[in-house]
Simulated scan of single mutants.
Amino acid sequence: MAFGLAGLLVVLPNPELVAQLPDIGKTAFSWSLAGGGVIYMLLGCAAVAVYAYRTLGVWHWLGFMIPAIGLSLGSELLGTSTGFPFGHYRYLTGLGYKIAGLVPFTIPLSWFYLGFSAYIIARLGLNSFKTPSWVKEIGAIVIGSVLLTSWDFVLDPAMSQTAMPFWVWDQPGAFFGMPYQNFAGWFGTGVVYMTVAVLLWKVKPLRLPKIDLSLPLVMYLSNFGFATIMSMAEGIYPPVLLGVITGVIPVVILYLKASNTEEFSSFSDNQNNEYPSVKMPVASVGGNK
């Protein structure tokens, strides 16, 4: 992330800096432009995939990742070819090979790792409230989708209006160049794949000890911070404030609620299932990744 920010915000707008670089520096810069975004998203996906496997097991890891990647890809392909549900837009270069010539393969990966991070924090944060399990499940889907959309409040203006944009809007809108429909599409896509994941999780009910949520929190905040720096560098401030109110503050509150509860985390309405207390290895994650 830091390498990408330096290239986009410092080196790219100042071509004289590139000219002054030694040959190895010019080569590194060209590599970063060609594949920096791809590596960044591959590493994010890998980190969350390993975390989900270690804390929830194979079924619950794949039960979230496969719907997240598959359904978000379908939504993106539909959006880039028809304009529904996000509006009319198209991807440029810089994010890797395009599936069907429309959507970079890395985009569905980011839907997974940010969506999972948002959902798991929301779900375990709500677990401390004395409400029925189905209320927590629906609440986590809604809040997780809001957190996901809040990231896009900041990400979309930054990535479409930077000196080197990664996508462009053919349907300009009132929200810093993009239509409000885009956010309805983000929220709806999040709700759909999180709902499918929750239904798949019910096939193998699971109760876990309190989970270390450091990695999901760092993943959410670092990605939000990356987009924030990009937006502010372009002089775009209101989306950042909106994202902080609807994304950063709620995710930190939910993280603290989850960290302060000693209850078992239940992913099932059935408290007497065949997996009464499955203990999986818990990922112990530090402050960086």
Rank of each mutant, 00 (worst) to 15 (best):
E16T: 15
W169F: 08
G36E: 01
S160F: 03
K202N: 14
G185R: 06
F29P: 10
I39W: 12
E262H: 03
F105H: 10
E76N: 05
V285A: 05
G188A: 07
P85M: 04
Y91M: 04
L12M: 07
D269F: 06
L5R: 02
G235N: 04
L21S: 15
A174C: 06
P205T: 10
F153S: 05
V10C: 00
W151N: 09
L200I: 05
H88M: 05
M159N: 14
V191F: 13
G243D: 09
Y40T: 10
L206I: 10
Q271S: 03
S150L: 01
G25H: 05
V218T: 05
F29Y: 14
A122S: 08
V10E: 00
A47Q: 02
M194R: 05
G96Y: 02
I249H: 13
T228V: 11
V218L: 15
G247C: 02
T189H: 11
D23I: 00
A47F: 13
G79I: 04
L148Y: 12
R207L: 08
L21N: 15
S265E: 11
L9R: 06
F175N: 07
V38P: 09
P250L: 02
A34N: 02
T195A: 15
W111S: 01
G96C: 00
V154D: 03
I245L: 15
S259M: 07
A47P: 01
L71Y: 06
S268W: 06
C45Q: 03
W151Y: 14
M230Y: 12
M1R: 00
P179N: 10
A118E: 01
P250F: 07
V248A: 12
T131F: 11
S110F: 12
F105M: 06
L102Y: 14
S32H: 13
L109A: 03
L43V: 13
P276F: 15
V10D: 00
D23H: 10
A28E: 10
G35L: 10
V103I: 09
I66E: 02
G74V: 00
L242N: 02
V248I: 08
T162Q: 02
G74D: 07
M159W: 05
Y97R: 04
F224K: 05
I141T: 09
T80F: 08
S75Q: 12
V240P: 01
Y53G: 03
G7H: 10
V10I: 15
H60K: 03
A122Q: 02
L217P: 09
T106F: 02
R54L: 11
G139D: 08
V58L: 13
P22A: 01
R54H: 12
F267V: 04
K98I: 00
Y180M: 11
Y91R: 03
T246W: 11
Y53M: 06
G4Q: 10
A19F: 07
E262G: 12
R207A: 09
P165H: 13
L43G: 04
P250E: 08
S259P: 01
Y220F: 12
L95M: 15
